[in-house]
Design a protein around this nucleic acid. Structure first.
Lengths: 209, 209
DNA sequence: GGTAAAGTGTAACACTTGTTACGAGGGCGT
DNA sequence: ACGCCCTCGTAACAAGTGTTACACTTTACC
C-alpha cells in the first residue's frame, strides 16, 4: 500500500519488496478520535505502524496522577522498543487524538524481512535508538532541571504556548504552578506575551543576544 | 575469545562464528577503577562490550547537579542505543567503578554479522529493548511517584539498604532527605532496621501480607 | 444576545524536598 | 587510649511545587 511507503522504515523499499512483506499476516485498522489503541500492560506481538492521525501516549501512576509523555504524528512506529523485548508488555497507554489508521504486521515476518533487507534493519535500529535517546532526554529533564528550565525548554521546542492547561499536563505540572512560573519568567524578561495573527494570546521566549 | 562468549549476545554462537567476527577491526582495552570510559558528547562508532568489571553511568546537568542513572556489571553492552542512531553522540558519562575490560568492535562489521546471524540480531534487539524499558521505568519513577514510593521500590529491588549516602546518590536525592523518609517509613511500619550477620546495620522492607 | 462552560490569572496555605549545621557512633591507625 | 575520619540521624530553615478557591475573560452554543 502507498500508506506504508510514507514510513522512513520502508522508503528504501521497492513495491515488490513491500508486496513480499504483505503476504504475511497483517491487518489495517481504522480508529476515530478518542479510541484507545493499546492499554498499558498489553503484550506487543505485532509491529504497529501509525499511518494516519495523531496519538497521545500516557503513563499512569498508581496514585492516579497521569503524565502525558508525548504526542506522535503519522508516520510513526508505535512502541518499537517492545516488539522484541523479553518482557514485551507495553507500559504506556496509547490513544488516538484524531482519527487515524494503524497497521499491524506480524512480528516474525517483519523479523525475517529485516534479515533479508539490511536497509530496513538499519532504519528500524535507528527508530529504536531515537526512542532511547528521547527517553534519555526525558530522564535528564526530570532529574536535572527545575520547573523554570523545563518550561523554557518546552517553549523553545514549541516556539509558543497557546494553551496553558494542556502544556501543564504535558509537563506533568499543576496548572497554577505553570501560570506562576510563566508570570515569573515574564517578570524576569525571559518570556513575553504576544498576540498571534488570529488574535490569540500566546507566550513566547524572548530572543537573547 | 572466551570473554565474548559470556555475553547473551553471543552465547548462541559457535567458535567459528566468533572468529569470523573478530577478523574485522576491533580492540580490547583494560581499565582501572576510576577511569573514564566515555565522556558525555562522544560519538559512538563501535560496539562496546563490558567484559569485566563494573561501570557507573552519570548524566550531568547544566546546574552542576549530577544524578547517577545506574551501575552495570559485566557482561553488558554499553550504550547499544547509540550505535546505530542518527545522532550517535552518547549523552551520558561512563566511568569504571572497578578495574575492567571493554571490547570495541567495528560497527559495520557487527551490522553485517547480525544480518547473517539472526539469533545475534534478535539478542541485540532484546538488549536494545531492555534499555528502552529501563528508561521508561525511570521516567515513570521520576514523573509519577513521590520519594516514599521511589525509596520503597529501590529497597524491594535491592532487598536491603546498607549505605544511605550511596543510595541517596543513586536516587538523585539529598542524603538528609533520604534519612528522613527512611525514618518515616520506619515509623509507619513499612521498613525495619535489622542487623546483618557481619554486624552491619541495614534497612529492609517489612513483609506485607 | 445571553447564558453556560472552559480557560486563565492570582492569592493563601500545605506539603515535600533541599540546605545547612551539629552531635553521636564506629573503624582505624598511631 | 586518643584522635581522626567517615557515616549517620536529626533539627531548623529555605525553596519549590501542589492544592484549593475565587474572580475575570473568552468561547461555544442555543
Amino acid at each position: 500500500m502507498e500508506e506504508l511507503k510514507t514510513f522512513p522504515l520502508f522508503n528504501t523499499c521497492t513495491d515488490e519488496e513491500l508486496q513480499e512483506l504483505l503476504q504475511s499476516p497483517h491487518r489495517r485498522e481504522e480508529y476515530v478520535a478518542g479510541d484507545l489503541v493499546v492499554n498499558a500492560g498489553t503484550p506487543c506481538r505485532s509491529l504497529m505502524l501509525l499511518a494516519q492521525g495523531t496519538v497521545e501516549t500516557r503513563m499512569g501512576g498508581a496514585n492516579g496522577r497521569e503524565v502525558v509523555i508525548e504526542q506522535m504524528r503519522s508516520p510513526t512506529v508505535l512502541a518499537p522498543a517492545f516488539l522484541f523485548a523479553e518482557d514485551n508488555t507495553i507500559p504506556v497507554e496509547v490513544s488516538m487524538r484524531t482519527d487515524g489508521v494503524v497497521w499491524y504486521i506480524n512480528r516474525e515476518a517483519f523479523f525475517n524481512f529485516m534479515t533479508q533487507h539490511p536497509h530496513v534493519l538499519r532504519a528500524f535500529l535507528q527508530t529504536l535508538s531515537a526512542r532511547s535517546r528521547f527517553l534519555s532526554g526525558k530522564v535528564k529533564g526530570f532529574a536535572v532541571k527545575g520547573l523554570r528550565d523545563r518550561v523554557l525548554d518546552h517553549i523553545r521546542k514549541h516556539d509558543t504556548i497557546t494553551n496553558v492547561s494542556e502544556t501543564a499536563e504535558q509537563l506533568g505540572v499543576a496548572r497554577p504552578s505553570l501560570s506562576r512560573v510563566l508570570a515569573e519568567l515574564q517578570a524576569d524578561g525571559l518570556v513575553e506575551r504576544i498576540n498571534l495573527s488570529n488574535n490569540v494570546k500566546a507566550y513566547r521566549a524572548v530572543i537573547q543576544k
